[in-house]
Design a protein around this nucleic acid. Structure first.
Lengths: 98, 98
DNA sequence: TCACAATGTAGGCGAACGGCGACAATTCAT
DNA sequence: ATGAATTGTCGCCGTTCGCCTACATTGTGA
């Protein structure tokens, strides 16, 4: 889902936290932040620091993607998809089951 | 592309800015932040405030998406995806590169 | 309904923010 | 090679952060 504002982040974090049955206290510990910081970010605090936001998303096993002109779809270092020689697979299949 | 750390944000912002032929000064004005703030965020400052980061992405016409368990794929109000006639695209491709 | 957990709020504290101006360093075109 | 544009760094300053403790509020289950 797209996130455009700090309020969006708050809603998403709260939703994901609840989906995992976590309390604010638990999430705070998992993300290494104070409990009131969770309260604040879930309320959409715009001046929250970026690093803690990312820590929190990670603690919730959420991932962020960025899109737009000039941004490649994937990074080299990102887990590459397996390369398959479709032709070879098909050939092999034809040989075994004609 | 996935972004996991503040450094990732910095790289993406710089890349998008250059892809648009903008100077740090111009981006700073467009995002309503100081020029030194752009310097800092592009360097990966972890304690930058969330709101300004989002302003900057908006100024670059970049969009953020969040994914994970408990997060719906799209929001009701989100702009619908373009409908593509795959068959037509494939037909055209076959004609140009048989 | 009642008690307890979960969540939201307030004040105090040291630390860091981000804007600004000024200056160095780097990049780039001519 | 040289000069301008772009980018990076420094210090000052008022503001805000985020953590903490403690207390108010809301929610939830027995």
């Amino acid at each position: 889902m797209r996130v455009n504002t700090p309020v969006d982040f708050g809603l998403m974090i709260r939703q994901a936290r609840r989906a995992r049955g976590m309390t604010q206290q638990e999430l705070a510990r998992a993300a290494a932040v104070g409990r009131q910081w969770i309260v604040a970010i879930e309320a959409g605090k715009p001046r929250a620091e970026l690093g803690k936001v990312l820590q929190t998303l990670a603690a919730l096993d959420l991932s962020l993607s960025i899109h737009g002109k000039g941004i490649p779809e994937v990074r080299e270092s990102e887990d590459p998809i397996e390369v398959i020689d479709l032709q070879a697979v098909l050939d092999a299949h034809r040989r075994t089951s004609p």
